[in-house]
């Protein structure tokens, strides 16, 4: 550096050097501090994303040579019944639990946010607890609870005079079982998100409404819901992504079929990707699945923002 300063006036090249040195001296810290992210981003995200794109135009088992297939993989996806089924399954599972769970989470949050109930921390903890548990662990327990012959659920049904139900054996019920497990695990999380939103709503609004003679229900409908719109949207978007990327829940509940479930009822796009990549060694095809999956999710999320986020408060 001293050398550069000394010769700063004699050579134009070293003037650039000085400027560079000054730049480094001035900005080294922030660049250094953000560099871990960008290094990791380049190695573990950007490179894989690009490599994945290349792979999706090839046929490759991970061992032999890569064979160029052009758009073949994508063309085959259009006729892949399992792939199409996986999206239909996700959509059905979404409808099965997301509206109900979101509504319940909002109501619970409103209850726990008001002074209406005692021991609120206790209820909050109980409802939130499932979220911190490993899905694998509770998945096996749920498989036990859902068991047709030895499960607690059917035992209760029989006790009240109802017939046994094939929870894990019939396609529609298999999806319902997955939905139940997902709801159980994520209800508390959604409730907490809603609580966070509710705490940002000024209390005066409710006081004003009460003075105007509005009941609890009225203020819930006319104040809470409109003001909570962005938070609800956020929760729903997260649930959408979560539903389409379900893996562990069906994988554990339906181990016999590696998560696909009866008649592929619980096959999700991510499970399909997993089977093709690590079960059938179709790395190229799996990459095409990944790209289409990404595209669909992107469009779905964008659509939800556009439809419901536009005039939200």
């Amino acid at each position: 550096m001293a050398y550069a300063q000394e010769h700063a006036h004699s050579q134009p090249a070293s003037r650039t050097l000085v400027r560079a040195a000054g730049f480094v001296r001035r900005y080294w810290a922030p660049y250094l501090f953000v560099s871990p992210f960008f290094l990791m981003f380049a190695a573990f995200m950007l490179y894989p994303v690009l490599f994945s794109l290349v792979l999706s135009f090839h046929e490759w088992n991970g061992v032999g040579p890569m064979v160029w297939r052009g758009l073949d993989n994508y063309a085959r996806l259009a006729h892949d019944q399992a792939f199409i089924q996986s999206f239909i399954n996700s959509a059905i599972i979404f409808v099965m639990y997301v509206p109900a769970m979101t509504a319940l989470a909002l109501v619970l949050a409103a209850l726990l946010n008001s002074a209406y109930l005692r021991a609120r921390a206790l209820w909050r903890a109980a409802i939130f607890l499932p979220y911190v548990t490993a899905v694998v662990a509770v998945g096996f327990t749920f498989a036990l609870l859902f068991d047709r012959d030895f499960g607690l659920l059917n035992l209760v049904l029989v006790a009240v005079g109802l017939p046994k139900v094939d929870w894990l054996l019939l396609p529609a019920l298999a999806r319902l079982s997955v939905s139940t497990l997902v709801t159980w695990r994520w209800l508390g999380y959604n409730m907490v998100i809603m609580l966070g939103g509710l705490q940002n709503i000024p209390g005066e609004l409710y006081e004003a409404a009460t003075i105007d003679g509005a009941g609890v229900l009225r203020s819930f409908l006319s104040i809470t819901i409109p003001l909570m719109r962005p938070v609800i949207l956020f929760a729903v978007v997260l649930s959408t992504i979560g539903t389409f990327s379900l893996f562990t829940e069906p994988y554990v509940l339906f181990q016999g079929t590696s998560g696909a479930g009866p008649a592929r009822a619980t096959l999700t796009p991510v499970l399909h990707l997993y089977h093709n990549a690590f079960g059938f060694l179709k790395f190229g095809y799996a990459s095409a699945i990944a790209y289409v999956y990404f595209g669909v999710l992107f469009v779905l999320t964008a659509l939800q923002w556009k439809l419901f986020g536009r005039d939200g408060g």
């Binding site: 396609p171 079929t257 696909a260 009866p262 008649a263 059938f280």
Partner: peptide
């Protein structure tokens, strides 16, 4: 075979369920 087996298993279920 692993792939053929997984395809057939699903179709057998379709028969079993009367679909």
């Amino acid at each position: 075979y692993p792939e053929a087996n997984s395809v057939m298993a699903q179709e057998i279920v379709n028969v079993a369920l009367g679909r």
